[in-house]
């Protein structure tokens, strides 16, 4: 179904949807060891001017990476993944990940990536390089 070799410039990647919640954010703190209170303590996050707890950028990025691995399956590897965190992600958001092939050089695919919330605001922009296995 994937057949990475058939992907060409301007082809779109399969979309992934993710709904962050408080429990996932707490669990990500535990698995990552990042206990920054801006992710865990609403009162702290409000005092810090964030309006409430926010998801770890790395949690959102991990889901962006998962979108790629679900798409490439065993046919390739992520050799580079770069993101800019554009806007905060909060519990209750609905995040949709998108990607499009921007360049193809032999067995390397370059993908422009982004994630948007339910208000169509961009929360992450990114770039990935995928090497296609022989």
């Amino acid at each position: 179904m994937n057949n990475l070799m058939s992907y060409q410039v301007s082809d779109r990647l399969p979309i992934k949807v993710w709904a962050p919640n408080h429990l996932q954010i707490r669990q990500y703190s535990e698995v990552s060891g990042d206990f920054n209170p801006i992710h865990l303590d609403d009162n702290y996050a409000i005092r810090a001017g964030l309006g409430g707890v926010i998801a770890h950028g790395m949690l959102t990025m991990a889901h962006m990476a998962a979108m790629l691995t679900e798409w490439i399956g065993q046919e390739g590897n992520i050799v580079m993944l770069s993101v800019r965190f554009e806007q905060m992600v909060r519990p209750g958001n609905k995040i949709t990940f998108y990607g499009i092939i921007s360049e193809r050089v032999e067995k390397t695919l370059v993908c422009n990536l982004e994630a948007r919330n339910e208000n169509e605001e961009k929360v992450i922009s990114g770039l990935a390089k995928i090497s296609i296995n022989n």
Binding site: I38, A48, I78, M80, L81, S82, R84, F85
Partner: peptide, 12 residues
């Protein structure tokens, strides 16, 4: 604690 994560890049 108040630091914000702006960008992240992994290269393998």
């Amino acid at each position: 604690p108040g630091m914000i994560h702006g960008e992240q890049k992994f290269t393998y």
